[in-house]
Design a protein around this nucleic acid. Sequence first.
DNA 1: CGTGCCGGAATGAACGTTCAGTCCGCAGCG
DNA 2: CGCTGCGGACTGAACGTTCATTCCGGCACG
Lengths: 198, 198
Amino acid sequence: MIHQTDPEKRQAILRATIELVAKRGFHATPMAMIAARAGVGAGSIYRYFADKEILIHETFAEVSSRMHEAMVDGYPRGESIRRRYEHFFLCMSHFFVENSSDFAFLRQYFDSPFGTALRRDKMMEQQCRDTDCESLSCLIEEGIKSGHFKDLPPLAHICIVFGSLTSLARDHIHGFLTLDAKMIQLIADACWDALARH
Amino acid sequence: MIHQTDPEKRQAILRATIELVAKRGFHATPMAMIAARAGVGAGSIYRYFADKEILIHETFAEVSSRMHEAMVDGYPRGESIRRRYEHFFLCMSHFFVENSSDFAFLRQYFDSPFGTALRRDKMMEQQCRDTDCESLSCLIEEGIKSGHFKDLPPLAHICIVFGSLTSLARDHIHGFLTLDAKMIQLIADACWDALARH
DNA sequence: CGTGCCGGAATGAACGTTCAGTCCGCAGCG
DNA sequence: CGCTGCGGACTGAACGTTCATTCCGGCACG
């Protein structure tokens, strides 16, 4: 059994994992490097995580939950669908821009055959478990039913929003364009046009 | 110096690399496995590629050029901007759906810190070298200048189209939705709404 | 019978994981 | 209050494995 005696040390390991995997990719970050960056001995990681794979999965869980928090915080419950859509779009953009390591880690995680199908489901599940359904997918289903949105599979709408957003965030991080508040708003409007009936 | 005595063997190695990296990820496909799948000895790979990194880069070049071909084939030169946009969208969708291993390989390549900045530039460059500029980015610049498209950075438009499309292709391959011809057309229309002024 | 490509065993480096020893804080005793 | 002994978290050198790369005996072809 693993005793997690020092939560700070655990956090340090998680943070080191995020930063290194984000910058170097999973296959190029040895455990020893993570340990060095976290300021712990190589063996100590195994006090907190059974092996490398579990470390990666738990790191994902941590990032995912932090992102979920950011999304739910300040959700304009009960307001118009357009405003709620904008909340999601702006929150995600800001989260990705502000936490670029988290973002890069997530991309690595999802696109390596580490987190395929299963994990995406889990993420959706997690967000939909809320009693008031404060998730993008619920918003989209609502929009389709109410006739605000085009009659496409909900997942197609999600792909348009998420796909655009993550591509933009990536290029922002690589320095190819600048996602300031004004730009984010313009792009949110553009993506809205893709979703909306006209 | 490397003598490439047998072009067929070289192709077999490239194909094996694409399929294995697509399915298992780069860090989980040893050279020995590639050799076995290609039906050659472990040492023979080094007759064609100096090391693993070069093998990956050249595999990317091969996939990239095949994709470029598919894109240029049947380009409706001189027709309306809408029709040319649709050509790109439909070609890419079909290419990704038909060549799902190529697609998965490309995603792995771009999102691992293998092909960051540099490679994306190269891809754009390659497409723009054509005298008639049969590339999506040129199309978009034309659309912005002519007032058909919103006044955003061209790269933002590209992110919306590429990002949506690649997310959709991924979910199609994972079986979460079905990209048939009709669906692709609907989504091309939706993305057009994101690009277009209204 | 020579020549040069080929395969796959051999090699050495690098990695994940382990474990014997170290260190630290505390409890109990003098 | 100080000294000592103890428990367990921590360390990092060592281990066994895996992998990229090399090397050489054999084989096919001329």
